[in-house]
Nucleic acid binder design. Sequence first.
DNA 1: AACCCAAGCAACCGCTATCAG
DNA 2: GCTGATAGCGGTTGCTTGGGT
Length: 343
Amino acid sequence: MDMAHERDASSEEEVMAGELRRGPWTVEEDLLLMNYVASHGEGRWNSLARSAGLKRTGKSCRLRWLNYLRPDLRRGNITPQEQLLILELHSRWGNRWSKIAQHLPGRTDNEIKNYWRTRVQKHAKQLKCDVNSQQFKDVMRYLWMPRLVERIQAAAAGQQQQQHPASAGADTPPMCHGGADDCLYYASPEELPADACGGWPAEYYAAAAAAGGGDHQMLMNSNNPAVAEMSGTTTAGSSSPSSDSGVVAQQPWLAPVGGAEEWFTAATACDASSAAVAMHDAVLGAGQQHQQQEPCLLGETTWTTASSELPELGVADFEIGSFDVESIWSMDDSLWYTQTQGV
DNA sequence: AACCCAAGCAACCGCTATCAG
DNA sequence: GCTGATAGCGGTTGCTTGGGT
């Protein structure tokens, strides 16, 4: 667009003239931005940048705020729950990062995009196939995702076991509102332990508190677009004619609640572990028949342990021969290990 | 200790969509 | 309806860091 080019050109001139800064943000800049947003609110980023005394473009300020300084951001590793959701939503919507991010409270589109590029594409590379190929999509759907479900179940089971005694609930850290093991959000940055679930660098806390902190409970109310859309209340506003309309409402495991912890609850009722075993055996041609169990919905796939029904899932057409299956099972095992240790 | 390399992530870029005057 | 400003999106780049040699 010509306008955009003109604006960029003028920005370039300003940079050359030393009027605009580029590159990594300093703590001072962050504090300026945080303080200004806390007292004046978001929006009008160009004038905000000028008014706040920041030698940055409005665009840069907006990005810094959205991707790094927002108090409702969730930091730390992408959890298996989130991985599962990303895989599922990406299979449905493709590279629509922003749309996917709406369903992962506290995560930014940039973060999800980076996750996809670094982790998922890495696995595709390891498997020597294109990340967009049907082959890799099958690997994700029939091997990786069931594996994630399995992990989540195991973590939930371990957690339940630990909490089941009389102390259940009493041990839940007061700052966690989304679950003891996997904090989804905090009521305020002050509550956020530096070593858990992420958060701002320590030096920001005092300034954030002084600035008023903003609306830290943003994620917890029904105004959260992710919550609203999951509940099916806003599906009419969907803009994608190809795949958006009403799909989420059909997902029993995407319950209309505020976080990955709770949407997953429905899925844990299914025996995805057995499904994963069945898939594993099926693709390896083990021919072992497993006990018939109730089908389990995972995304748009009906999971079953009955090998005779596998062709319906398309597994019969799934060529795994060239893949190192064990590498699939070990995907993100380091993350898995650290998380299970925390349970 | 020095170097290299790959991974991860923050930031930028180019572009389109939307809104207000 | 036109125009300019702003918001937002997805792709890409480049810096930092940690591990290996």
